[in-house]
């Protein structure tokens, strides 16, 4: 079942087209990655899902119905630009946000307590945001967006500014929510996180959809055209017709092959050039590569054209 569905959605602000004919489907119980460079139209798309904006053309469906304000209580939204009231106690803020989503105060107090314990903030509930570190405030904001136990959660850069321990804690919470059948729309620039967590993705650039579908299918579409080569010795063999682009990392090289090139030929030329090969692996391109190539129209790295 599709929990969220965008059908040929377009949104304009004056002459500027923020989102143009975008369609995607988010299946229930999955984590969906909404990707794109800054200003691509991600936030506008999200705002239409949570009914802050109405689309000019097309349909935005949440649980097979057009979004209404009543539906907002089924959605939890953690915006990228987020904040807390400076002069209000943490617990009071959480209760306030829960109240707005239709949870009564007694129930909200209980849930706030549970969540604060779970995210290791129990000692801070009587404090004001100014007493909290940025990371702690962020966890509080996360709680505010899930305290009403929504069916759909939209998390925009949920991990930015968190230390690795907190990132791990929050990741486990998100995966746990998925286990419980919740649907999560996840927007980030951290491609490793998308590779780790997302089932499906949609990539938007300049308001138009560039890529969409299952993460694995998308990667497969690009084929195994990348070689990871851990080698010692000369690099000269990399300047060849076989190699479209390459990136030299301290411990290995990531080599993007030309369309018709055979990986075996690269290995041969490396050995012929006198390099010592420790590892040779043919892989799918990283999502990072796919992202950059889709957005800029060319692959990243110091290409062979140098």
């Amino acid at each position: 079942m599709n929990v969220v569905e965008l059908k040929h959605v377009t949104k304009r602000f004056d002459q500027f087209v923020a989102v143009k004919d975008v369609s995607f489907e988010v299946r229930q119980g999955t984590i969906f990655g909404l990707l794109g460079p800054n200003g691509a139209g991600k936030t506008t798309s999200i705002r239409m899902i949570v009914n802050i904006f109405a689309p000019d053309d097309g349909d935005v469906l949440v649980m097979n119905k057009h979004v209404t304000n009543e539906m907002q209580s089924h959605i939890g939204y953690l915006p990228e630009e987020r904040g807390l009231y400076k002069k209000m106690k943490i617990e009071d803020q959480l209760i306030f946000f829960a109240n707005l989503k239709g949870i009564d105060t007694t129930e909200a107090t209980r849930r706030a307590d549970d969540w604060l314990k779970r995210l290791e903030l129990a000692d801070w509930k009587g404090k004001k945001p100014t007493d909290l570190s940025k990371g702690m405030q962020q966890k509080v904001q996360f709680i505010a967006s899930v305290i009403h136990d929504p069916d759909v959660m939209i998390l925009d850069e949920p991990f930015s500014g968190l230390d690795p321990v907190s990132v791990n804690l929050l990741k486990n919470v998100i995966l746990d929510l998925k286990q419980r059948g919740k649907t999560i729309i996840f927007s980030t620039h951290q491609m490793e996180q998308v590779e780790q967590m997302c089932d499906d993705i949609c990539l938007i650039n300049h308001g138009t959809q560039v890529l969409s579908g299952g993460l694995k299918a998308v990667k497969r579409r690009y084929g195994k055209n990348t070689v990871i080569l851990d080698h010692e010795g000369p690099d000269s063999f990399l300047q060849s017709d076989l190699v479209k682009q390459h990136k030299r990392f301290p411990n290995y090289s990531e080599i993007l092959l030309n369309d018709s090139a055979d990986a075996q030929e690269v290995l041969k030329s490396a050995i012929a050039a006198g390099a010592r090969v420790n590892r040779f692996e043919l892989v799918e391109p990283s999502l990072n590569e796919i992202f950059i190539e889709s957005v800029t129209g060319k692959a990243s790295g110091n290409g062979s054209e140098q």
Binding site: V50, I52, R82, G83, L84, F97, S145
Partner: peptide, 17 residues
């Protein structure tokens, strides 16, 4: 202005008109 500059609005408008 407080709600706007502290960016609470975005969370609020996802709950109320």
């Amino acid at each position: 202005i407080e709600e706007k500059s502290s960016r609470i609005v975005e969370v609020l408008v996802s709950s109320v008109k």
